[in-house]
């Protein structure tokens, strides 16, 4: 028996909008720790890891570990029927091949349940060790989204370089090239507007902008984004999901041929 009640149901709606472009089908795993997902895009270049910790739910019942295969486009269709202020409850019986999404309006005057078929999904689970990163950039998520969008109108790849001067995003294409430098800036009115750069050593890596743009679909979840970089390692782009967890996107770098 599985029953997860999330008062801030809009978080789940935003999570689905954040990942459905990158991944088509995925297994949602439920355990005592929380509700999680790990899935790669079809080309195995990018990966999304989601964790919503059990403490973040108003009610969390998971009698035994359960993996539920879902088509994310179908989940998104279901969740779009929930109001932004609705409380969302996920329910599944042991051995059932369906999951039920229950939507309650805030004043309890409307209760809806949507039952969705589960599917069998063969997915490979990657073991991602905790790593020390050479550079960690924390910046406003809207700023990062704007940079990725702007650069993708010029080129296909972005070089992200972190030095003592700041973080530089560069691209080049047929019509020309572009460089955007963001300096550390902590003298702002609100903490979420700050750009904070923690650098152990300079790092410069190249990534496909198509994936970066896809990651920025998570922007509505958090005012800030954290970009962790190490030489010759995939970048980690992390958005917090309120105080209950995170979405992390991993993207393998490109190398000069």
């Amino acid at each position: 028996m599985l029953e997860l009640r999330l008062v801030q149901g809009s978080l789940l709606k935003k999570v689905l909008e954040a990942i459905k472009e990158l991944v088509t089908d995925a297994n949602f795993d439920c355990s005592a720790t929380g509700f999680s997902l790990q899935a790669m895009d079809s080309s195995h270049v990018a990966l999304v890891a989601l964790l919503l910790r059990s403490e973040g739910f108003e009610h969390y019942r998971c009698d035994r570990n359960l993996s539920m295969g879902m088509n994310l486009n179908n989940v998104s269709k279901m969740l779009r029927c929930a109001g932004n202020d609705d409380i969302i409850t996920l329910k599944a019986d042991d051995g059932s091949d369906t999951v039920t999404f229950m939507f309650e309006s805030p004043n309890q005057d409307k209760i809806a349940d949507f039952e969705m078929k589960l599917m069998d999904i063969d997915s490979e689970h990657l073991g991602i060790p905790e790593a020390e990163y050479h550079a960690i950039v924390k910046m406003p998520s809207a700023e990062f989204a704007r940079i990725c969008k702007d650069l993708s109108s010029i080129g296909d790849t972005v070089v992200i370089s972190v030095t003592k001067e700041g973080v530089k995003f560069s691209t080049r294409g047929d019509i020309g090239n572009a460089n955007i430098v963001c300096r550390q800036n902590t003298t702002v009115d609100k903490p979420e507007e700050a750009t904070i750069i923690e650098m152990q050593e300079p790092v410069s890596l190249t990534f496909a902008l198509r994936y970066m743009n896809s990651f920025t679909k998570a922007t509505p979840l958090s005012n800030t984004v954290t970009i962790s970089l190490s030489s010759e390692l995939p970048v980690v782009v992390e958005y917090k999901v309120a105080d209950m967890g995170y979405i992390r996107f991993y993207l393998a770098p490109k190398i000069e041929d």
């Binding site: 790669m40 270049v45 073991g127 995939p234 991993y250 190398i255 000069e256 041929d257």
Partner: peptide, 14 residues
């Protein structure tokens, strides 16, 4: 020209 690496070249499967 750039070559795209894949995640499996960095992380093992579980």
């Amino acid at each position: 020209n750039c070559l795209q690496w894949r995640l499996k070249e960095f992380y093992g499967t579980q």
